[in-house]
């Protein structure tokens, strides 16, 4: 991954990772709130990685 893409994606994901729990769902006493949010966000990043790396090894 190019450095600039890495930086942009990292900054976006980090912002979501911090802002959503602190400002929107942190006060909800349920597994369906922060627990589900962080799990879903992480899983989305893993799916992105699986799709992104599927091109690895295919020479241009």
């Amino acid at each position: 991954m190019k450095g600039i893409y890495f930086l942009v994606i990292l900054a976006l994901v980090t912002a979501v990772d911090i802002i959503v729990p602190y400002f929107f769902i942190g006060g909800i006493a349920s597994l369906a709130a922060c627990y589900l949010f962080w799990s879903a966000l992480t899983f989305a990043v893993i799916v992105f990685a699986i799709i992104y790396t599927s091109q690895w090894g295919r020479r241009s």
Partner: peptide, 16 residues
């Protein structure tokens, strides 16, 4: 639940 957040943050960074 913050413990999950902290550990998942680690995993997100590591994957990227």
């Amino acid at each position: 639940v913050g413990a999950l957040g902290f550990e998942m943050t680690y995993l997100i960074f590591t994957v990227l």
